[in-house]
Design a protein around this nucleic acid. Structure first.
Lengths: 254, 254
DNA sequence: CGCCAACTTGATGGCTGTCAAGTCAGGTGG
DNA sequence: CCACCTGACTTGACAGCCATCAAGTTGGCG
C-alpha cells in the first residue's frame, strides 16, 4: 500500500517500447538535457530512444556485466551495492528520478556494482559510446555530463565524511535530511515521505546495523523530531535534526 | 612542524613555469596521455604547458576557491580533505605521481576539498575548459578522461566499503596493500616504502583515531606481518595481510 | 488464518574512542 | 656537540557507543 503513492505517471499504459523524448520529459531540468537548446535536445532524443520498465526487486545491472550504457531514472527508486568475497555487502547509494546510474562501469567497461529497483520504475537507456559521440558535438552536453560525474565524486566524498567522522545519530539525521531535500527538489513533500529501503539497507549505507537504525528512529520519535510508522516518515522538527548534524562544542578531532 | 610551512601566497604562480611535455613524461602511461598517438600527444603538450613546484605543507588549492584547472601530479605526494563546520576533518584521499587532482571542482565550478602536499613535488596544470575543447577533438582523450573520472567514483565506492563494512584491522591492512600496489605500479618496492602521512591522517582517512592506527601497526609487527619504524614500513607477509582483509567464515552481514 | 519478512526492543559484550603518560626523532640554539 | 623543545608516535587504563544475540511485535500476502 505504501509503495506507489508518489508516482509521476508511473502507471501509464504498457510496454517497454514507449518512445522517449527528453524534450517532453518533466525531469529534463534534473537530468542530462539540462541547459540544452531545443534543437540539441532533439538530437539527444534520438540517442535516448529506449525506455525500460524495471520491477521491484529486479537488477538493472549486476557487477561484472559488460558496460554499454548508462541509465537515467525516469521513475522509481534504486539502490546500488557492492559485494566482498566473504559475502559482506555495502550499499553505495540510493537513486531517484532524474539521477544517472551506471557511471561506475565506464572505467573498466564492466559494471562494478549492482543496481536494484526498490520499487517499480522506468529507466532510459543511454548508449555510452553514442553519448560520447554526441558530447563531442554539443559542448553544453559535454560539460553537463562532466558536471554530473564530478558531483557524483563530491557526493561520495560526503558519504566518506559521514562514515568516517560522524556518530550513528548524526549519520541518520544527515541521511533523512538528504532524502528530504531530494524529494523536495522533485516536487514532493519536504516533511513526509516513504522510505523505499529496509532498515538493513539504510544501515548498510550508513555503516550501521539495522538494530541501531531502528533504535535511533525510535529515539528521534521519542524526542519529537520524527513520526515513524514503519516506512512512512514525517519530519516534525527539521531544525533540530540539522542541529544534531553539526552540533556545536563537539570536540574537534582530526 | 607541518602546519605553518604553508606559504601565504601558495597559489600564485611564483616560479618555475618549466616547459612541460607529456610526450617526454615518464608517467604518460599512468596519466592523461594514455593511449594517444604521437601527434595527439603533441596537441596535449600545448595545453599542459605549466608545471609548478609545490612544497611540503602547501595547499595546491582550497575548498571554495574557483575551479579552473585540474592537476596532474608529476612527483610528490598529496592528501585531499574536507572540513565540517564544527572543525571535524575527513581525509578523502592520498594521491601520488600520475594521478589527477581537482576533479571534484568541476560540478560546482569551485573546489570542494583541500589539496595539500605531503612532500615536495611538482604538478602540471591542465586548464579544464581547454581540456574539454581538446577532448571534443580527440576521441581517445575524451574516453580516457571519462575512464579516469569513473575510476575515481569506483575508488570512492571502495572507500565506502572500507568505512562501512570493515573492522579497524581490515581497514589498515587494505590501506597498506593499496599503497603497496600503487607504489609497485610506479616502479618502487612492493614491500618497503615510506608513509608520507601521519598516523592521524591515516586514521582520518580510515575512520579511526590515531591511537587505533598505532596500535594495529604494533600488533601487525608483533605478528610478524610488518616491520614498522616510524614512517618506514616493510611488509613481511603480504599473503597474511591479504588473508586479514577477506577473512573466511566471518559472519556475513547486510 | 497463518506465515514470513521486516521491524522493535532489551540485555550483554567488545571494539574502538578517550584520556593520560611517556618515548622517540628531528631541529634549533647555546 | 649537546641540551632542549616540539610534534609525532606508542602504550596503558578505562569508558562508551554500537554490535551481537535473543525475544517479541507488526503488517502484508498467500
Amino acid at each position: 500500500m505504501l509503495q506507489h503513492t508518489e508516482n509521476p505517471e508511473a502507471l501509464s499504459p504498457t510496454l517497454a517500447t514507449i518512445k522517449t523524448a527528453c524534450s517532453n520529459c518533466n525531469l529534463r531540468e534534473l537530468c542530462l538535457p539540462f541547459g540544452l537548446s531545443e534543437e540539441e535536445m532533439q538530437r539527444l532524443d534520438k540517442l535516448v530512444n529506449v525506455r525500460k520498465r524495471v520491477k521491484f526487486g529486479e537488477n538493472l545491472y549486476r557487477a561484472g556485466q559488460p558496460f554499454e550504457s548508462i541509465y537515467a531514472i525516469r521513475s522509481g527508486f534504486f539502490k546500488t551495492d557492492m559485494l566482498l568475497e566473504d559475502g559482506r555487502i555495502q550499499v553505495t547509494g540510493f537513486q531517484m528520478a532524474g539521477e544517472l546510474l551506471g557511471l561506475d562501469g565506464i572505467g573498466a567497461e564492466r559494471h562494478i556494482c549492482n543496481a536494484v529497483a526498490l520499487e517499480d520504475g522506468e529507466v532510459c537507456y543511454i548508449p555510452f559510446s553514442r553519448l560520447e559521440k554526441l558530447s563531442r558535438e554539443i559542448q553544453t552536453l559535454q560539460h553537463h555530463f562532466h558536471r554530473v560525474m564530478s558531483r557524483e565524486i563530491v557526493r561520495d566524498h560526503g558519504v566518506m565524511m559521514l562514515l568516517g567522522a560522524m556518530s550513528a545519530e548524526e549519520r541518520l539525521a544527515t541521511f533523512l535530511l538528504n532524502l528530504s531535500q531530494r524529494f523536495t527538489a522533485r516536487g514532493f513533500s519536504q516533511t513526509e515521505f516513504n522510505l523505499r529501503m529496509t532498515r538493513a539497507e539504510i544501515g548498510s549505507y550508513l555503516g550501521l546495523k539495522l538494530e541501531t537504525v531502528s533504535r535511533y528512529f525510535s529515539r528521534f520519535q521519542e524526542e519529537g523530531l520524527l513520526l515513524v510508522q514503519q516506512k512512512n516518515i514525517r519530519i516534525l522538527n527539521t531544525d533540530a535534526l540539522k542541529a544534531l548534524v553539526s552540533r556545536q562544542g563537539y570536540s574537534r578531532s582530526l
